[in-house]
């Protein structure tokens, strides 16, 4: 059985030699891109299952949890990224498609979605 560990411990578990790429310069462009992916049926289509309090997100579904309190739920943004990349790791039966693992979105697109939803 896989052991659950705290976020801090798991961060210590993983040694990386690179940091996330610098994003400050194009952050608002990245958020806009993330929003477009979130809403687009052909791309992320996140809206089909997740409510989000963005005025442009109409008729969201409720198959998944609403996008609220993201910073509290995911103090480490990378944990959120991992959940979007492959939600089946935590729940093999989930309806949520493994957006990264199945290369439904590119890595850049996933980064953009993370930045967009992390505002809520």
């Amino acid at each position: 059985m896989r052991k659950l560990v705290t976020a801090a411990a798991s961060a210590a578990f993983i040694f990386t030699t690179f940091a996330m790429p610098a994003q400050a310069d194009n952050h608002s462009a990245q958020i806009a891109e993330g929003k477009s992916i979130y809403l687009s049926k052909k791309r992320g289509n996140c809206i089909s299952c997740h409510q989000i309090s963005d005025p442009d997100a109409n008729q969201a579904g409720n198959q998944g949890p609403p996008i609220v309190a993201m910073k509290q739920r995911f103090p480490d943004k990378r944990t959120l990224r991992a959940q979007i990349w492959d939600a089946t790791r935590n729940n093999p039966l989930t309806i949520m498609p493994p957006l990264g693992k199945h290369w439904i979105l590119s890595e850049e697109e996933i980064d953009a979605v993370v930045e967009y939803v992390y505002q809520f």
Binding site: N62, L93, W103
Partner: peptide, 22 residues
């Protein structure tokens, strides 16, 4: 499929929750 969906995912497990408005 690329979306990793079974029939049961929506029509059993998801049969009480909405996909968009449906």
């Amino acid at each position: 499929g690329q979306l990793n969906l079974s029939c049961a995912n929506c029509h059993l497990q998801g049969s009480n929750i909405r996909v968009r408005a449906d």
